[in-house]
Design a protein around this nucleic acid. Structure first.
Lengths: 199, 199
DNA sequence: AGTTTTACCTAACGGCGTTAGCAAAGGTAG
DNA sequence: CTACCTTTGCTAACGCCGTTAGGTAAAACT
């Protein structure tokens, strides 16, 4: 008797629909605007039905971010086949990663917990300038003897800043699997060292 | 007559108190738990009083993150005086930046909009592993001819990942002041290139 | 047929940000 | 001292939110 199977299928369907509707809502209005009530509205069921399929709102976001990881993984897998040369492959990985982030910003934000409802996303630019200035001055001081170029320096400031911020936010969000905090610091010291050597 | 001045002073005081109490709440229970009502409770005034001093909740968070920037700036300023040698100064900047982030995580999260209520801060570790695997394999492929060390590779994976994620999240959060998106991509390509050269 | 399980809903709880409208206190001028 | 105005602060509400208790009607099973 296929009744049970149909039931399971329907349940699975509902679950998928909820996730799809949720993702659409995040895409349309940002993850902050996502609400259980709006999802219920979109799937034309009452609110408690959602809770038959997900423990709570966070579980929905969690599942969505898993989808994000799977999507990214599939893209990286392709590079493995397409680029046998490891250098080319690493470059392709970077490209893939970058493209994934900007083609699916809602996924990327979900995966890394980006996007607090403060700091107004952009209103802060001037505040970052003083920081950039300090880094820029030091870099120009080091690089003076070589041929110095303005846009070059700008690039290097960004690179430096990115390494710092990237490491910090990965550790802070507990994505790092290095448990020793001094180890994490050492990764930063090493990377900064390498960065300077490469100036 | 100092009445007006006293009033201004009192108003200023109230404002400062609100910010202090808000920061404490963020420190105690995370920024997600911060609420106007709890602030009002803590300062022993009714809720609408808050709105005499701040336009809305976001304005409070914004002001707090400005405090964060000022704090960071002051620390960097000290390095300028203490380390005349630019290389030493740049290293000190990195150190300062790192320390600031982990001594004041609530500030850092505010400044960069970190910390969505999903992805469960840490629950995701396994999900990142596949990504690390792909990067790691490519790096080991490149570095094979030289002396290869396990922990070395691990470090390099983190460094690579950090550069990518750092750049992406800075651009995504619109902290970048480069408006041309192809420029941002070029910064990444350059940095990846430099990273590979340095392997 | 009656009985149990499932699907689904209404209605509520307690919390949130925000605002309208009112009362009291503080200060000013006659 | 009185009349007035401004500031200060409150209560109460609006419309959201996530989550859950409890009930009803249909579906499936015996």
């Amino acid at each position: 008797m296929g009744i049970l199977e149909r039931r399971i299928r329907q349940k699975e369907n509902m679950r998928t629909t909820i996730l799809a509707v949720a993702l659409q809502q995040v895409k349309d209005e940002g993850w902050q605007s996502l609400s259980i009530r709006k999802i219920a509205d979109a799937i034309e069921y009452s609110v408690p039905v959602i809770y038959d399929h997900f423990e709570n709102k966070e579980a929905i976001l969690f599942e969505l971010s898993l989808d994000g990881f799977r999507l990214l993984e599939r893209s990286l897998e392709k590079n493995k086949k397409k680029y046998p040369d490891p250098t080319e492959r690493l470059k392709a990985h970077a490209e893939t990663y970058w493209n994934f982030a900007f083609k699916n910003p809602e996924y990327y934000q979900l995966m890394y917990g980006l996007g607090m409802p403060c700091c107004g996303a952009g209103k802060m630019k001037p505040e970052f300038n003083s920081f950039r200035k300090y880094i820029g001055e030091a870099i120009e001081g080091i690089v003076k003897n070589k041929k110095s170029d303005d846009s070059e320096t700008c690039f290097k400031i960004y690179a430096f800043w990115s390494v710092l911020h990237g490491l910090i936010s990965i550790v802070m969000m507990r994505c790092s699997d290095i448990d020793d905090s001094t180890m994490n610091k050492k990764v930063m010291d090493d990377t900064v060292e390498a960065f300077i050597k490469n100036l």
